[in-house]
Design a binder for these strands. Structure first.
Lengths: 196, 196, 196, 196
DNA sequence: AATGAATGAGGCTTCATTCAT
DNA sequence: GATGAATGAAGCCTCATTCAT
């Protein structure tokens, strides 16, 4: 009965993770394009190519779906830096540079999504942010301990929060990306007292 | 019975600015407490102690009400720094310090509202942000021209965006405020190359 | 204290009938221009140049205002024909012609208003229409009695209703008015059997 | 328990056309009974026995629902006459009679609805009316060409508009229907000059 | 008498969620 | 498991009417 043209359409049955990803991707796209607040379950279903009811087989509620979007983002955001930190071949300043590079590129690439997703929402708590923090914290501490950074008289928590917000600004306005990244690297170094 | 200080009880008729403020205040409180997205006109009316319809005598729509919340914030945020900039008695670094002080105190005081209000929303354009930017831009340029700041090889736009986001971070976590402000002042100086 | 320019504005106090007429005229204009359903008390007040509340000094409710519009129209519509009927110098056919002329001109002039006003509304009963009917009824009966009209075997009520609706049709489409009126006169004569 | 004639009880799911008709019927009934302007979506839903939101599965908006009411009426109104016109067995006068018969019966049956529906509304354009017109126009022209009607010196457009409004009058007052129809047939014949 | 700010019922519409198929 | 018609709470806004001034 099956004709050979029929297989071009999405098969009706998909493994759960695939469906889940389809839905998350649709939601992410819509959140960026039309704003999270304007993204209804109906639209998500439509774009994901599933029925409205089916979303509820994978997510308990709209809230949960959005939470899914969030953890998704964090996960991807933390992938790179974790490796950077343990790379023995880099100096602390270079690690700092690498983190800037990674985060800014990520931000530049996803910032529509990032900003669409991390507001509006009774954000379920910032556990993943905490992870990013602790990552940077170690970087600062170890860089300082190694004498590469100069944080004398500064509260490391404050420096941390300063940096974690600062790099986002230059991602917005469309200057040349390479220039922006390079500039921010230098400003990070200045901030931690690593500039010659 | 009527004393000359009177009016603790609500009278039915209020001058427009008073009503307007009642409504804005109610909206602000709700935006902070329950999230802007969850703040319905009905709730605002309830908290403001006016009828639902009355809001529309002062704001054309929900959008306009939110826009009102925004301009309100910006207005108050820009009051101080404008004066700082023209204060001849301060060095450029001291002016930078003053701006940090002002903005951080403002942020610390309002940041619940600030963050509730400046997202979710098809923000009516960032004209006021632009104003804050141009203010800081002049500060940086003139400080650099005066030789107090060192921005060699840096794109002033990038530095600007960097700073405008950076100070917000340290406002969140409850370290000692005085310490946080002091730290951020030093970090701002480092960023613009003004530290000895 | 009164300057000489002040009197150009409408004096604040007007005799009731004048105010009443101002309001009715405003309502009529709005009903024609924007549709009766879209005509709010606020708009009427605005166009009439009075306060919203003042309308209620002259009309008990919106319903009553609309009823006022209706009787107004009927009154003017019935003015002419009543005189025609008692004019001894005219034959019955000529009287019929005159009524056609009067009503069509009235309709052509007011039909926007007419159609705006006589629908939508729980029309308070058609007492004035009854008056127009009885007028025409007498015309038909007397013309028939005089041998000018031939209504043999026809129910006079039916003929009446037929005519009272028929003339309205040709008022709509913009053929030459004079032609239309002349044609309708002939058709009325045909209908009552008065054409040679 | 389930009989094969079954379904006197409402089942939750109905084919779209059935639901659509339920809603249209409810709307029609309310429009007649309480006036179109007083017919809210909530009442329609209630009378139709569906949820408020369900109406929007079948009609995009209140406007569309009302438009639906209109086309419904027109459709049924135009069914008969189209056939009459091409019936070779009838003389032109008989065709005229048939159209009168059809329209008056229709009007008598539906006129509450008819008049409730065709006012108040930014009527979506009168395309269907135009269809009724062109139908009658052909009838008049061909009857005249055949020498059965005498329209000498008359503008056919005027005659048309005259007739299209005239027959509605006698539908209102409750004389004997058969008499009314018979009378109007004769008056139509007189109007087109077809009476012996 | 005149005003217009204030009221609040009620209208239209959206949308997260459910559930019979 | 998948579907999407059906639901109904809740949102925004309008407007006839009232009433303190």
């Amino acid at each position: 009965m099956a004709s050979d043209t029929e297989k071009l359409t999405e098969s009706r049955y998909q493994p759960p993770e695939v469906r889940r990803r389809q839905i998350l991707d649709a939601a992410a796209r819509l959140a960026v394009d039309e704003g999270l607040a304007n993204t209804s379950m109906a639209r998500v279903a439509e774009v994901a190519g599933v029925a409205k009811g089916s979303i509820y087989l994978h997510f308990e509620s709209r809230q949960q779906l959005i939470a899914g979007l969030q953890s998704d983002l964090w996960e991807r955001m933390l992938e790179g830096p974790a490796e950077i930190l343990v790379d023995e071949s880099l100096s602390w300043s270079e690690k700092l540079d690498s983190v800037v590079e990674h985060w800014m590129r990520f931000e530049l690439e996803h910032h529509g999504l990032y900003h669409a997703v991390f507001h509006t929402v009774p954000s379920s708590g910032d556990e993943p942010l905490a992870e990013a923090r602790s990552l940077m914290e170690r970087l600062l501490e170890q860089g300082a301990a190694a004498g590469e950074f100069n944080l004398d008289g500064l509260d490391i928590e404050v420096v941390l929060d300063f940096l974690l917000h600062a790099y986002i600004g230059p991602c917005f306005h469309q200057t040349d990306q390479a220039v922006a990244i390079d500039n921010v690297k230098r400003l990070f170094r200045r901030t931690v007292g690593a500039e010659s």
